[in-house]
Design a protein around this nucleic acid. Structure first.
Lengths: 348, 348
DNA sequence: CTGAAAGCGCTAACAA
DNA sequence: TTGTTAGCGCTTTCAG
C-alpha cells in the first residue's frame, strides 16, 4: 500500500532510472523515431516503475503547441446533450494537446458580444453545438477574427466549413425501413420543428423509404409538430383519430413519441400491441418511460471528440502548409436502438 | 476589426507597456499586496489594452501549485447530472488553480482497480457523485492512499468527511408544506428506491410536515416505488384507486410524478384541476411534459463548484497547518420550482 | 514597495 | 542515435 508521494516523479527521475539523458527519455516517452530499442525499453520500464505521468503544463509550455479551444454553449443546450459533448471533448483535448475551455454565451447576447468574449479568451478555435452553429452571423464574425469554427450537427454543412454530424435523412430512412420490415404499411409521421433543417431531412428519409417500398404516403398521416411534448399530443390525436389509423407512428423526436404513447394509452390502445411508436435522439426520456422507446441514437460524445480532432488537424495543416485549408465534414454513424415500443402489426 | 495576433501577449509585454518590471506586473495581476496604487493601475490598463490573459500552463508550472483533481463517474450517472457537475467543476477549477481531469470508472470494476486508476493519474483529490460516494470500500481505500475525497450528495455525511449536498428532508418538508398551504389535506406519497437513503429522508420530511400540521398520515396513502417510471405507474394506480383518493400526490422523483400524471389522464382526471402532482429533482422531464411539474431543484452545478472549493481549501490548510484537517460539510439551498401541476384542491 | 536571478518540467533546436 | 543548450511564461526566492 504505497503512499502518495509528496512530489510526483519528473522526466529527470525517469532518465536517471533508465540511465539515459532526459532528451532520450522525452523522445522515447513521446514515441518519436531515433531512439534505440534498448533505450526505449529502459525508459518504458522506468516509467512503469516510477509511475511517471508527464506534466501537462510543462509540456504545453515547452512545446508552445498548446492552443486553447472553446466549447461554446447557449442556454438552449440541454445539460444532457452538453454533458455528452463535454465528455467527448474532455477526453480528446489532452491527447491533441489542446486546452479546452467551456464558455456559456449570455442569453440574448449579440453575435459581436459573444465574439468579443471568445476573442478575449484567446482561443484559436471554437466548437459550436446547435443552435449556435446555425447562427451565420456569429460564425462569420468568428471566422473574420481568424478563429476556427467546428459546427456540431449543423443544419447546413458543406465543403467550405468544418463540421461533424450524422446523416439524418439516412437514419430516418433506416428507422422507417425497420418499421416496414416488421410488416407495417400504414405509418404515421410526426414532424419536427420546421425551423430546424433536421426536421425536413428526417421527413425526406421517411418519404424516400416508403417510396422505395412502393408505399404511397398519405398527407393525412403526416402530422405537424415542433419537437415539444405538447405538439406530440395534438399530432397523435390527429393520427389516432384517423378513420383508418396507422399501425405505427414515427415521431421526429423522443418527446413527441412519448406524447404519442400517452395518447395511445388514453385511447386504451396497447403499445406496441396495437400500435408501434418510435422516437428519435435517444434522450434519457426514451428509456425512462414505458414502453421504452425504439429510437435513433446520435453519437454525441463522438461528435465532440471528432470536433476536437478536426480542430487539431486544422491547426496543424495551417501551421505547416500555410493557407492550406483542408476543411472537412465528418459524418458519424448513428445507431438504431431497439427497445419495447415496436412490434409486428396486429392482424386485423 | 482587429485580427487574431499570432502570439498572445505575455506578462513581459504587459510590464513593458506599464513601464514596470515583470515582477511588479505579476504581483499586480494576482492582486497581491505590496504594490503601489499607481503601479497597480498602470498594469491594469496595460492588461486591458493588450487583452492579456495569463498563461495557465506557465502559471501552474512556476507556482508548483497545480494540483490535479478528478471527477469520477460511473455509468449509472446520467449525462444530464454529469453535465451539470462538469459545468460547475470546470468553472471553479481554474480559479482555484486546480486542474480537473474526468475519469469514468469501468463498469463492474473493483474498488481497488478504481483506486489504482486514480492513483496512476496522480490526482490529489477526487469528487465522487452518487452512487460512488456511498461505496465505503472505495472511499476508504482512496483515503488510505492519501487522496482527498469530496462526496456529492452522499447518503450519509458527517464531520469526518468532506461533502456537499442539500437537505432532502427539509426540501420534502417544504414541498409538503406547499401542498398544505394550497389547501390539500389528503396527500398521497410515492416512495423512492429504499436502497437510496435520500428516499427515507424525503419520506421523513413529508411525515414531519404533515405531523406538524396535525394531519394524520394514512398508511394507504404511502405507496412503494423505486424511482422508475414503471413503479410510479403502479403506485399511482394504488393511490388513485383508493376509496377516497388523495387530492394531491407527492412523488419522490420526476419520473414517478410523470407516471402519476399518465395514470390520472388515463382515469380522465384533470391535472391539476382534479389532482395536484409534484415531483422531485427537476430533471429535464419535469418541463418536457404537460402539465409541467412543480418540483424541487437541486443545485447540482453549485455542488460541484463547492466541491472544488472544498478541495482547494483542504489542500491549503493541509499545506500550511500541517495535519489540520478542517473537514466540512457544505449544505446548499434547494429551490421549489412551481410550474403547472399543482393547484388548490377542487371543492367536493 | 520594487527588481534581478533562478528555476518549475518539458521539448525545440542544435551539436556530437 | 544521443546529449547539450536554451527557453516557453510565470512565480518564487532574495536582495535592493
Amino acid at each position: 500500500m504505497q503512499r502518495n508521494d509528496r512530489k510526483p516523479p519528473t522526466i529527470k527521475d525517469v532518465a536517471a532510472h533508465a540511465g539515459v539523458s532526459v532528451m532520450t527519455a522525452s523522445r522515447a516517452i513521446n514515441g518519436r523515431a531515433l531512439v534505440s530499442p534498448s533505450a526505449r525499453q529502459a525508459v518504458a520500464q522506468a516509467v512503469e516503475a516510477l509511475g511517471y505521468v508527464p506534466n501537462a503544463s510543462a509540456r504545453a509550455l515547452a512545446g508552445g503547441a498548446d492552443r486553447r479551444v472553446a466549447l461554446l454553449y447557449s442556454n438552449s443546450t440541454t445539460s444532457a446533450y452538453l454533458g455528452e459533448l463535454l465528455l467527448g471533448a474532455l477526453a480528446e483535448a489532452p491527447q491533441r494537446h489542446l486546452h479546452l475551455v467551456v464558455e456559456q454565451c449570455a442569453p440574448g447576447a449579440f453575435a459581436q458580444e459573444i465574439v468579443d468574449q471568445v476573442a478575449q479568451a484567446h482561443v484559436a478555435g471554437v466548437i459550436l453545438p446547435p443552435p449556435l452553429c446555425d447562427w451565420s452571423d456569429l460564425v462569420d464574425r468568428l471566422s473574420d477574427r481568424d478563429i476556427a469554427v467546428v459546427a456540431i450537427a449543423p443544419d447546413r454543412d458543406g465543403p467550405d466549413r468544418l463540421s461533424v454530424g450524422t446523416d439524418d435523412r439516412h437514419a430516418a430512412y433506416d428507422l422507417a425501413r425497420h418499421l416496414i420490415d416488421l410488416g407495417h404499411r400504414r405509418i404515421g409521421f410526426i414532424q419536427g420543428n420546421p425551423r430546424h433543417r433536421a426536421s425536413a431531412r428526417r421527413l425526406q428519409g421517411f418519404r424516400d423509404c416508403l417510396g422505395d417500398h412502393g408505399i404511397v404516403v398519405e398527407d393525412d398521416l403526416i402530422a405537424p409538430g415542433d419537437f415539444s411534448f405538447r405538439s406530440g399530443l395534438d399530432a397523435a390525436e390527429q393520427l389516432l383519430g384517423h378513420a383508418t389509423p396507422p399501425t405505427a407512428i414515427f415521431a421526429c423526436n423522443d418527446d413527441m413519441a412519448a406524447a404519442a404513447i400517452t395518447v395511445a394509452h388514453q385511447r386504451k390502445m396497447n403499445v406496441p400491441g396495437d400500435i408501434s411508436i418510435c422516437g428519435f435522439d435517444d434522450t434519457p426520456l426514451a428509456s425512462a418511460i414505458w414502453p421504452a422507446l425504439t429510437t435513433i441514437r446520435q453519437p454525441i460524445r463522438d461528435m465532440s471528440r471528432e470536433a476536437i480532432a478536426l480542430l487539431s488537424m486544422h491547426f496543424r495543416s495551417r501551421d505547416e502548409g500555410g493557407d492550406d485549408d483542408s476543411l472537412a465534414t465528418i459524418r458519424l454513424d448513428y445507431q438504431l436502438i431497439r427497445r419495447q415500443s415496436d412490434a409486428v402489426p396486429a392482424r386485423h
